[in-house]
Design a protein around this nucleic acid. Structure first.
Length: 418
RNA sequence: GCGGCUAUUGUAUAAUGGUUAUUACGUCGGUUUGUGGUACCGAAAAUCCGGGUUCGAUUCCCGGUAGCCGCCCCA
C-alpha cells in the first residue's frame, strides 16, 4: 500500500455520524407520524429500477436519464438506473394493483434518491425525500388536504406561519389566460419556463427574454399585467383559508418545471432571505399510470427533501439538541468488575431503558463526568461494596438524587419511570 | 457541461519570504486512588499535492486535486 485511501465520502453524498443521524431520524419520524396522522400508509421499493421507466416519459427525458442519473448495465445486459425520483415507481406500483386497491389511496414514502450532477447548496447526489400522494380522487378538497398535510409538517416541527409562504397556481387556469392572449402552445411552454426563473432575474433581463418569446412588446405588457394582477383566486386557496391556513399566495409566476402536472401546483418557500428557496413542491396530475395501460388514475402529491428540510430548520433554529447517549451508564470502579457490570446492565435493560457500560480504564470520577457531559440520566457505580451487598446505587445526574436498592427493585423503579 | 472563490492540527481559526506557526473547541492526562458537567494545570495534534521564482516558500507564480458557491437543469 503506497497510496492511502481517502476518508472522504463519495462526491455529493453524506456520512451520517451519530449526531447527524439523530437529526435525520428526528426529521424522518416527524414526517412519518404527520403523514400517518392524515391516514397515509407507508410503502417503499428498491433503489434499482429499469432505465426504461424514466426514458418512457418522453423523448425529452432521454437527455435527463443519460446525463443526470446513475445508469449502468448489469451483468445480464440490463440497463439499470438508481431511482432519481419516486413518482414513476409509485405509479408503477399503483398500476400493478389498480384492480385490487380500495380507492382513494393515501400513500407516503421516504426514499433515498440519486442524481448525477454537480452538487451545490440544497442539492446533493443522494438525498431522502418525503413523498405523499393521494390517488383516485379528482377533487379540489383533496388538493386542500395534501397541502394541509404539508403545512402540518411545518407546524409539527415548531414552525410558525411567518417562516414560510405557500405559493399556489393552477396549470389549467394559466393555460386559458395565455390562450386568451393569443399565445400558441410553444410560446406558453417557453413562457412557463421563463416565469419559473422570474424572481431570480432583473426586471430588464426578464423583459428581454419575454419579448423574445412573444415577439411583440404590447403582448409582453399584457403578460406582465396578467402576472402581477392579484385578482385571480382558486377554490384551493379558499379551502385552505377554511382550515385556517392563511400564509398562502396565489402566484401566477409559479411554474414547477413542466412534466406531468395538469392542475393545481404549489410550492412552499422560505421567507428568510438567507434561505430564499423552494422548500417543497407538488401538484395534481391526471394520468400518471398511463404508461402502464389500464384506467387513468388521477392524483395529487408532493415531495419534500431532507436537505431542504434541514436547511429550513437550521435557518429558523428549530432543531432540538439530539441526545445520543444511553439513559443509564454502569460504571465499574475497576476493570476487574467489567464483566459483572455487563451482567448488571443486561438485567437493567429488561426495564426497557437503554443501558451501556463504561468499560474504560478511567477513574470513577472521570466516568461520572463523562456520563454527565453526554447527558445520560443515571449512573450506577459498581465496586466491591455493591457486588458484596447485592445492593446498587442508581444516581440521577439531573437532580442529584440517589436510590439504593436490589437489582429487582431498581428495574421496577426504571420500568415505572419510563 | 460552464464560471467564481477557497485550501494552515480532528473541527473552527490567526499570522508570516527567515529561529519554536496563534487561539478556541474537541480528544487524552492531572489537580481528585469510589462520585458530576464548572474551574485550574499539562500533553498529543496542522501549512493539500507537484513544479517554478528565491540564498531561503506555508506565504509569491503556474498546474493538479479537493471542497464551497453560482449558472445550466430541476425529479
Amino acid at each position: 500500500m503506497t497510496e492511502k485511501l481517502s476518508t472522504q465520502p463519495y462526491k455529493g453524498v453524506r456520512d451520517f455520524y451519530p449526531a447527524e443521524m439523530a437529526i435525520q431520524q428526528y426529521i424522518f419520524s416527524t414526517w412519518a407520524h404527520t403523514a400517518e396522522s392524515f391516514g397515509f400508509a407507508r410503502y417503499d421499493a428498491s433503489v434499482l429500477e429499469p432505465a426504461e421507466l424514466y426514458r418512457a416519459k418522453g423523448a425529452e427525458n432521454e437527455e435527463m436519464v443519460n446525463q443526470q442519473t446513475y445508469t449502468f448495465t448489469d451483468r445480464g445486459e440490463r440497463e439499470v438506473t438508481l431511482r432519481p425520483e419516486m413518482t414513476p415507481t409509485v405509479a408503477r406500483m399503483i398500476a400493478a394493483k389498480s384492480k385490487e386497491l380500495a380507492w382513494p389511496v393515501r400513500w407516503y414514502s421516504i426514499p433515498n434518491l440519486y442524481r448525477y450532477e454537480r452538487a451545490q447548496r440544497g442539492r446533493l447526489r443522494e438525498h431522502w425525500q418525503l413523498n405523499c400522494d393521494i390517488f383516485g380522487i379528482d377533487d379540489m378538497a383533496t388538493d386542500v388536504e395534501i397541502i394541509a398535510l404539508a403545512y402540518q409538517i411545518f407546524m409539527n416541527f415548531g414552525a410558525t406561519d411567518d417562516m414560510f409562504t405557500i405559493h399556489i397556481n393552477d396549470r389549467q387556469l394559466m393555460h386559458r389566460l395565455y390562450v386568451a392572449l393569443n399565445l400558441n402552445e410553444e410560446q406558453i411552454l417557453s413562457l412557463t419556463r421563463l416565469n419559473d426563473r422570474r424572481d431570480k432575474m432583473t426586471a430588464e433581463a426578464y423583459r428581454l427574454e419575454l419579448d423574445g418569446i412573444t415577439g411583440d412588446g404590447t403582448v409582453s405588457e399584457e403578460v406582465i399585467m396578467l402576472l402581477d394582477k392579484s385578482d385571480a383566486q382558486t377554490d384551493v386557496v379558499v379551502g385552505l383559508a377554511e382550515l385556517g391556513i392563511t400564509n398562502v399566495v396565489f402566484d401566477k409566476s409559479l411554474a414547477r418545471g413542466f412534466d406531468y402536472y395538469t392542475g393545481t401546483i404549489f410550492e412552499f418557500k422560505d421567507t428568510d432571505p438567507d434561505n430564499n428557496r423552494s422548500l417543497l413542491g407538488g401538484g395534481r396530475y391526471d394520468n400518471l399510470t398511463a404508461l402502464f395501460g389500464g384506467e387513468a388514475v388521477p392524483g395529487v402529491g408532493f415531495g419534500f427533501g431532507d436537505v431542504t428540510m434541514r436547511d429550513f430548520l437550521e435557518t429558523h433554529d428549530l432543531l432540538p439538541e439530539p441526545i445520543i447517549s444511553p439513559t443509564v451508564v454502569v460504571a465499574p470502579t475497576e476493570p476487574v468488575h467489567n464483566l459483572s457490570a455487563q451482567k448488571i446492565a443486561q438485567a437493567l435493560r429488561s426495564s426497557g431503558v437503554s443501558v451501556a457500560v463504561d468499560s474504560s480504564a478511567r477513574k470513577i470520577g472521570k466516568k461520572l463526568s463523562l456520563a454527565g457531559e453526554n447527558l445520560s440520566t443515571y449512573v450506577v457505580a459498581l465496586g466491591e461494596d455493591e457486588i458484596a451487598s447485592r445492593r446498587y446505587t442508581l444516581k440521577n445526574l439531573v437532580d442529584g438524587t440517589e436510590t439504593t436498592d436490589t437489582l429487582e427493585n431498581l428495574i421496577d423503579y426504571l420500568t415505572d419511570k419510563y
